[in-house]
Design a protein around this nucleic acid. Sequence first.
DNA 1: TAGATTGTTAATCGATTAACAATC
DNA 2: TAGATTGTTAATCGATTAACAATC
Lengths: 213, 213
Amino acid sequence: MNHEETLKPALIRRLVRYCHYIQARHAIECARTISSVEIASYTDVDESQVRKDLSAIKVSGTPRIGYQTPEVIHAIHHELGFEHDLLAVIVGAGHLGSALARYRGFEHYGLRVVAIFDTAPEKVNTVVAELVVEPIERLGRVIGETGVKTAILTVSPDAAEDIAHRLARAGIKAIWNFVPARFKAPDGVFIRHQHLSTGLAELAYFLKKAPDN
Amino acid sequence: MNHEETLKPALIRRLVRYCHYIQARHAIECARTISSVEIASYTDVDESQVRKDLSAIKVSGTPRIGYQTPEVIHAIHHELGFEHDLLAVIVGAGHLGSALARYRGFEHYGLRVVAIFDTAPEKVNTVVAELVVEPIERLGRVIGETGVKTAILTVSPDAAEDIAHRLARAGIKAIWNFVPARFKAPDGVFIRHQHLSTGLAELAYFLKKAPDN
DNA sequence: TAGATTGTTAATCGATTAACAATC
DNA sequence: TAGATTGTTAATCGATTAACAATC
């Protein structure tokens, strides 16, 4: 066992980019090989970086030819764990939570939503994406029975931290947080904050700076 | 006019974090002042960095006391342009596009969706968040008439690049791209990629690596 | 063979952290 | 006053880019 390094988040993000681009190229032009220069120019990454990144996940290319596209795609999928099924519960059946439950775009990455919860009595027992919304009190039982390790958090900002801890106690190991709030992660739980407001802030700032507003 | 530097994306992201945290603290505990150490510990940023960042947006604190919470919040809002209204159109009335149209969480940042478009005839003329879905052909006219500068992109991956160029021709200056595809930005247009699959990739990788899966 | 592209090492650059004098 | 905290400069660290020998 030779060290098995952990990929850094920045590297993971670049790999996802490469994958998006190469899959598009592969689908449209049936390109069987691709060079680091091509990948670099489309993904806004330096070409040396691309070669380094691919070498980090043990993909090698051929001088004068480039990399085999199917091999690159497969290696990235394998390395990032897209091959495994990723079962998840959603907590918060508001607009965002319901949309994520219905969204088909994540199936490709193995995500499958198995339950959805909400505190509001008027939401409970409604149906979202073929799932009956359950009361938050059933959280522990459902997670225990299904063995789900991942939760998608789309509750209100003031409830987020409390719910995160309930999730941790119920056995959740990873939280994908869409709530615009930042809180300390419960011990042993990985939190990936997905604050859409950050993207919005960058847009707002650009528009404020743009000469012609 | 003394240089007027442009804030870097990383700084913008940190400012948004500070803001989330300070607003929460301000709301819950009515804390009137806050030190760089407190902000740092909650936002996972070094305390020197916090001081540097606040100084970059011309907020100053008082030794032994800290920073005035309302002043910090206001300065961040002002600097990032949250005070202006941000009118936007949404292109793609699928699950994600509709959810973003209905989502109330962005009002706080000044975002207002004024129109929503789709190519599918069965979507056109349906109502989403009090807006009638319009055919994509009306894009140019609506953007021209309203003077909207921002578009939220939630179409299918293979349509994304083409639509981005149509948006640019119609006068859009900033695109918030939720489509899991990366493409070259049309000249003079700012694209903020918001690839949710990147977050998902990080979760998948964590779970793959976690000892107990 | 000639030449394009990989893989990797070295050089540069920028971002993060540490340190500390100034200050309330 | 004493001591905590700011504001900023200097030191460190890591990430990015450049360069080039190896290679097909």
